[in-house]
Simulated assay, not measured.
Amino acid sequence: MTRVRYFAGAAEATGTESEHLDVSTLADLRLMILERHGSAFERVLGRCSLLLNGTLTEDPGTALSEGDTVDVLPPFAGG
């Protein structure tokens, strides 16, 4: 299973900080989390960056393996 961690507004929109999902690609992951968390989360997800094991990934065909971690990071400002 892939561990998905949600941060800031993504955690707020899903109501959880993490979950484990059985998916094989990044595209499958996106579909599953949208099915689980609905249209309100879809607006958030569209602005988020996805990190696979700490590395930014955008290719929906990226394969996910047992034990991977995907971080869902909304845009944020710092100072």
Score class of each variant (00 low, 15 high):
1 M>C: 05
1 M>Q: 13
2 T>N: 14
2 T>W: 08
4 V>I: 15
4 V>S: 05
4 V>L: 11
4 V>E: 08
5 R>P: 01
5 R>S: 11
5 R>Q: 14
6 Y>D: 05
6 Y>V: 07
7 F>Q: 04
9 G>E: 14
9 G>W: 14
9 G>I: 10
11 A>F: 02
11 A>G: 14
12 E>A: 07
12 E>V: 03
14 T>W: 00
15 G>P: 03
15 G>C: 04
15 G>E: 02
15 G>D: 04
16 T>S: 11
16 T>D: 03
17 E>N: 09
19 E>C: 10
20 H>Y: 10
20 H>M: 10
20 H>S: 13
21 L>W: 02
21 L>Q: 02
21 L>M: 04
22 D>Y: 04
22 D>T: 12
23 V>Q: 03
25 T>F: 13
26 L>C: 12
26 L>W: 13
26 L>E: 13
28 D>I: 08
31 L>Y: 06
31 L>G: 12
33 I>Y: 00
34 L>N: 03
34 L>M: 07
35 E>W: 01
35 E>M: 01
36 R>W: 02
37 H>V: 01
37 H>F: 06
37 H>M: 01
38 G>S: 05
38 G>R: 01
38 G>F: 00
38 G>A: 02
39 S>V: 08
39 S>H: 11
40 A>W: 00
41 F>M: 00
41 F>A: 01
42 E>L: 07
43 R>V: 12
44 V>A: 04
45 L>C: 02
45 L>E: 07
46 G>Y: 10
46 G>C: 10
46 G>D: 13
47 R>M: 13
49 S>C: 03
50 L>T: 05
50 L>F: 13
51 L>G: 08
52 L>A: 06
52 L>Q: 09
52 L>N: 05
52 L>W: 06
52 L>D: 06
52 L>R: 14
53 N>Q: 12
54 G>W: 05
55 T>R: 15
56 L>Y: 12
58 E>W: 01
58 E>Q: 10
59 D>E: 13
61 G>P: 00
61 G>M: 06
61 G>L: 13
61 G>V: 04
62 T>W: 03
63 A>D: 11
63 A>P: 14
63 A>Q: 15
64 L>V: 11
66 E>R: 14
66 E>K: 13
66 E>V: 15
66 E>T: 15
66 E>D: 15
67 G>P: 01
68 D>M: 02
69 T>P: 00
70 V>Y: 07
70 V>S: 02
72 V>E: 06
72 V>Y: 12
72 V>Q: 08
72 V>K: 10
75 P>L: 12
77 A>P: 02
77 A>E: 08
77 A>S: 15
78 G>C: 04
79 G>F: 11
79 G>M: 04
79 G>C: 04
